[in-house]
Amino acid sequence: MRKAVQVTAAGARLFGTIHMPSGDGKLASPRIALLLLSFGQQPRSWIGDLGTAIAERAAAAGFLSFRFDMPGLGDSPGDLPLLRETIWRDIQMGAHSPYLHALCWELQEEYRLEGLVVGGLCGGAVTSLYAVNSSRVKLKGLLLLEPEIALTNADAGMPSSPADERLDVEHFLERKELFFQRLFSFRSWRKLIAGKADYRYWKVLFVQSRENLSRRFSHRRDYPPETNHGLLDAWDRARRRSIPTLVVSVASASRRAYYRSYRLEPGIDQPGTRLAWIEIPNTTHALLAGGAKDAICGYVAKWLSSLSS
């Protein structure tokens, strides 16, 4: 059973859906509810209706579940920027945090909750993690699906030299991957010999490689330049407070390398700080393909039940 709701939080009117617990009407935990946030610019059901499916499964397990659209997204009114990259960057910097904190407060009061498990996918996970910064949120758990630790480059890219045109990768890992592709590409070699190389790509790759080597040999433990330090601070705060956390990510070499570059340990549980990290193979960032959608619903329901027991 679902209900459409609207809540005014921090001056914004937020549209949402409540999934009422099903079964015999008994709540698995009468005081703890699940709140899911939008995925980037997507509406609150997420791509492939994954958000809806998780909330349904949580409700079937006896948990009151909420999903809300942040301002301007989904059904919620509000202003939006011209470009997706801008809103991604804004979300990563915590633009949705005040609305989340106020929304949590409203839900806690309205439904007399002991606390909330807050979660989301990608950008939704980022906003969820920022909930640790608010003393108003009675945070009982964090559900982080494919959290993004890097900050998106929101520079619209002013016209520059033609050599820059093909540069559409951001991070060192992407550049490295592209390097091996180009190494075995006849077309790339032909362009290099013809003097039409993507000079900016090679220049940045050279600089980043030099910095990486320098870090390795000087034993400095720097983070990648695009690191979202505010988010990592929130991560550390959650671990210090031992907030129960379930992280779900894609089990791929590049994704593992991505998290490790931020000194996180994908796939490894930390019982001491109540962190569980599940990796799902044969799927993509949207966590739908290869049976991931169904698997995640099962993991979340089981994890929520463990919190209430």
Binding site: G72, L82, L83, R84, E85, A156, S160, D168
Partner: peptide
């Protein structure tokens, strides 16, 4: 997309 722009940016709200 601006001609000669370095990156492909995605439209959200034109």
């Amino acid at each position: 997309r601006k001609e000669g722009a370095r990156r492909q940016m995605w439209l959200l709200n034109p």
